[in-house]
């Protein structure tokens, strides 16, 4: 960087931003590469059904698929918003096991 650049108001170096973004997207793509094709659609449909009854955020649903030797476990995690009537549970969990 030249001396005059300090007065020109140079922007912050961008390489570290590039690396950070790549680390995140590559990790996500690696994780997604062995999940079944139907998972994103399944997630969306479940979200649609839940939103019919409760207003939930797009990010409030997490879908995880875990594989054991002879069984796959599909875990759904939906964070529901705090109910106005003051119900104790602010979060409910649902698990759905699918055996091969």
């Amino acid at each position: 960087m030249s001396f005059l650049d300090y007065f020109r108001g140079k922007r912050a170096p961008s390489a570290s931003v590039a690396k950070e973004r790549l680390q995140i997207i590559l990790a996500r793509e690696h994780a997604g590469s062995n999940e079944p094709d139907y998972l994103p659609a399944l997630k969306q449909e479940i979200l649609d059904v839940v939103s019919k009854y409760v207003s939930v955020d797009q990010d409030a649903i997490q879908v995880n698929l875990e594989r054991d030797d002879n069984c796959e476990v599909l875990e759904l995690n939906i964070a529901l918003p705090e109910s106005k009537r003051g119900a104790q549970k602010s979060k409910q969990q649902d698990s759905l096991a699918v055996a091969d």
């Binding site: 960087m1 170096p13 961008s14 390489a15 570290s16 590039a18 690396k19 790549l22």
Partner: peptide
């Protein structure tokens, strides 16, 4: 450009 922090370095690309 790497020295100026504008370009991914060799180590960055190798790590990724």
């Amino acid at each position: 450009r790497v020295e100026m922090g504008e370009m991914l370095s060799i180590d960055d690309v190798k790590d990724l």
